[in-house]
Design a protein around this nucleic acid. Sequence first.
DNA 1: TTGAAAGCGCTAACAT
DNA 2: ATGTTAGCGCTTTCAA
Lengths: 356, 356
Amino acid sequence: MAGISEVARLAGVSTATVSRALSGNGSVSALTRDKVERAAAELDYVVSSTASGLASGRTRNIGVVMPFVNRWYFGEVLEGAQAALRRRGYDLTLYSLSSSPDIRSSLFDDFLLRKRVDAVLAICVKLAPHEIGTLLGLGKPVVGVGGPMDGVPTLSIDDVEVARLATEHLLGLGHTRIALISDTDEPETNFHIASDRFRGYQLAMADAGARADPALFRRADFTVAGGHAAARDLLAAPSRPTAIFAASDEMAIGAMLAARDAGLSVPRDLSVVGVDDHELAGFFGLSTVAQFPRRQGERAAERILDGLTPGRTDGGLDVRVPVQLVTRTSTAPPADAGVRAAPHGSGSSSGSAATP
Amino acid sequence: MAGISEVARLAGVSTATVSRALSGNGSVSALTRDKVERAAAELDYVVSSTASGLASGRTRNIGVVMPFVNRWYFGEVLEGAQAALRRRGYDLTLYSLSSSPDIRSSLFDDFLLRKRVDAVLAICVKLAPHEIGTLLGLGKPVVGVGGPMDGVPTLSIDDVEVARLATEHLLGLGHTRIALISDTDEPETNFHIASDRFRGYQLAMADAGARADPALFRRADFTVAGGHAAARDLLAAPSRPTAIFAASDEMAIGAMLAARDAGLSVPRDLSVVGVDDHELAGFFGLSTVAQFPRRQGERAAERILDGLTPGRTDGGLDVRVPVQLVTRTSTAPPADAGVRAAPHGSGSSSGSAATP
DNA sequence: TTGAAAGCGCTAACAT
DNA sequence: ATGTTAGCGCTTTCAA
């Protein structure tokens, strides 16, 4: 509970000097700084963020807005952002849109405007122009993750490229009847993620002279259950695909489970590739295109802090973050490819795919 | 950017009256309140939380501390707390301990002390006495979720009872060779969760006159992969169990997958029961003891806000929150029980268990 | 019920 | 490099 004036008294300097010494703003002699630091430690002094924020206009707190926290991707981004912010002495105030459907307007009309945060990280939340306008008008920088927004620097993966990578992996193994499990774009949150992945798939197929058969497309909602249902449907069709590209690992895992339920072996009878490198992907032996959401969260946080520090230069507007094809045991040449023998020994229907 | 004085001028009253009208503290005539509200709306006035916080000592912000955000249980608690806080106009500032191992001391020495939060919710984080002391000494109420802490009101499930419920469910079906997959307690975070569940299992077994065979216990780390490995091991043993109680759904799901890998059918050859009612439990047909983490988060949030409002009474110190046995298709009488026939038609090894 | 005015604890000119 | 001082924008006595 000691205040800055007690520290000043104990150190034998003015409160202004204490402020300078502890914040690093303004010049203080090494000796004085030392005295001040000693005194502060002695008194367990901790700056009051409300007082400091009121006086300086800076809160050392970043608002993070995301559609929900309870999906693997978002949790990872959150952990990454949290870690990066804390390293630089910043707090993170969380705004999850899933709390209630009508929360969104109050968020932008009240919560984000009460000067609690210095800047906003929008994770896969497509801000409306007026929302961006309000924030920027208030001098609050915004950094986005997950898709381009007008006037907002953004980190994102190239979703077309991701789908192309995954599809080309399957094509390269000799597959041509490749099914796609994806979603249609949800307004307000997901930008063009689903449709971009759709396009990447189509482009890769076209480039390879393969047919993107509409009968091999199924919609699902990015969950295990959704992927399971979609794959079950695909696999029951008269002429089933030899491979499935699912636009998320959770759906891909659902597809692998559906294959097993249908008595099919992965990858002998069906190859499956996903996107994310979900924590369960390794366990299921799932080949996937890894994105690195924790790194994305870290980079977004660093980016926004740099934007708050006038000295640092901004690295251009929209930054692409890397992805990487990770091949495991869920993909192999199709059984009738004849190029090489199936690379495993187990002959029966259940088993190897789920062994880590 | 309009301040309280603009609002006061437009409404033709003093800033004090504006403050009273908008905050609800102190009495204002209906007419005046109306004028003030109009003026505030007209000017898009939003109170500055730093100024308000400095003047009043209240920030309308709650700190939430948890070991990590990226596990289903914690994500749910977080969503629940977030929703409840937002409903009452509060913000939520998140402190995840997983960011870095040495973060913890700085959290309690700096971050939580800078008057950014009015109170702290500790989710499955066992606070040391001096940490609690600091917080309470600063007048910051603390509410815990997940286990008793001295001097801190806590919401928790009865872990002994949870394990007993699950074990008795299996015993009631006729199982006696019941394996346990759990962990040993981690210091600093998990209280007695693992050991309490161990005890509940033992008590139930003893009450039923069954033997809690040490050879049927395996440690695992609450993950799918951990449960899978533990179950694989159990099922390879000379005399394998007819049922497994896993102390979390993720481990239980791992166990179900291991059973399938071993060519065993669930529940015909093996019954599995978990704890949590994880989002995937329904998909896998997993019988489980549901706890309701979202509700836990909500209740904890409401509890702490009530503690901040002097009028409301506190509902006693440690509150037990309800759990509920949910039976699905992963549990059935053992094959040799002879009581009733196996309740399904599929004769082969893979299949029904993963069908939602 | 309302207004006047004194802070809340710190930062940032401006001096020196 | 350091001290003096005027706010930052609001809340809350205290008086009326």
